[in-house]
């Protein structure tokens, strides 16, 4: 593994055309800019160990409202730059005076980066697939440079986590992860995420994806086994099934909603 770690200023390639992200070209040779792991597959790139998230158009991120201005929400997107979402980006028509009813300071949402200007003005949107405000679950923050390891090759790690922990997971490119499920499940999932982040410093995940999955599988099963949560998980599942059978079709739920609606009181 050791030969894959590179330091800033290290010579990586004699061919200037190979220069990928995290590198620079000087006198026709490629040098590293960052401290990280070398990826030599297509182009020579360096995956850094740390660093701040820099917004890129079309990225999906999780933002938290810092400020509400008369026409914009100002989001903290875990980056040196703040993100702005204009009123018109919200899927419903909102009166400017009621903006805080929909998203107030401290609320979080899954957002997409619409545009980034030259001076790094970041525009966000909430209209699109999977984009929504977040009212439940938890947000876990990791270093943004570790995000590819949580997602895995073609989302392999993420889908495994979803299956294993019965949780909804959404990974923002800015290093914020939204998880939602039973409290217990979320506790384990948090541990699992931490484990993957730790392992990512030892293993080259691009080559040893399976290896890390296996490592993780064994450790997580030990964890769950030792604390006897297997039982509770299965109980929970059966409970869910029961409730499915007991309960009623969707339209009755709607009727309940109508009943609960305080505007009719």
């Amino acid at each position: 593994m050791d030969q894959n770690i590179v330091l800033p200023g290290q010579l990586l390639s004699e061919n200037a055309e190979n220069s990928g992200s995290g590198t620079y070209v000087k006198d026709g040779k490629v040098y590293s800019l960052l401290y990280g792991i070398l990826d030599n597959k297509k182009k020579v790139t360096v995956v850094p160990f740390s660093g701040k998230y820099i917004p890129v158009p079309k990225d999906l991120v999780i933002g938290t409202v810092m400020e509400v201005t008369p026409s914009n929400w100002v989001f903290d997107i875990n980056s040196p730059y703040v993100g702005l979402m204009h009123l018109s980006e919200y899927p419903a028509r909102i009166d400017p005076s009621k903006m805080t009813d929909f998203l107030d300071v401290g609320d979080s949402a899954i957002l997409q980066i619409k545009d980034v200007s030259m001076s790094m003005k970041v525009e966000l949107t909430i209209t699109g697939r999977n984009l929504k405000t977040l009212n439940e679950g938890r947000i876990v923050e990791i270093k943004s440079t570790r995000v590819p390891y949580i997602i895995g090759k073609g989302g392999s790690v993420i889908s495994m986590l979803k299956k294993k922990f019965n949780c909804d997971i959404f990974v923002g490119q800015n290093g914020r992860i939204w998880i939602n499920g039973k409290d217990e499940d979320m506790d384990y999932l948090e541990k699992a995420i931490k484990l993957i982040v730790q392992k990512s410093y030892y293993c080259d995940l691009n080559n040893n994806n399976n290896e890390i999955l296996q490592l993780f599988e064994t450790e997580s099963s030990e964890q769950t086994g030792s604390e006897g949560s297997d039982n509770s998980q299965s109980e929970e599942k059966s409970f869910r099934k029961n409730s499915k059978n007991h309960d009623t079709p969707e339209d009755t739920c709607r009727k309940i909603d109508a009943l609960l609606d305080p505007s009719h009181d």
């Binding site: 009813d101 947000i139 876990v140």
Partner: peptide, 21 residues
């Protein structure tokens, strides 16, 4: 590898009414 997690709490009363309907 220290990670932070923030539980999302239910919204304030004003929004509760909003989110209910």
């Amino acid at each position: 590898t220290e990670i932070q997690s923030v539980p999302l709490t239910k919204k304030s009363s004003k929004q509760e009414t909003e989110s209910v309907d």
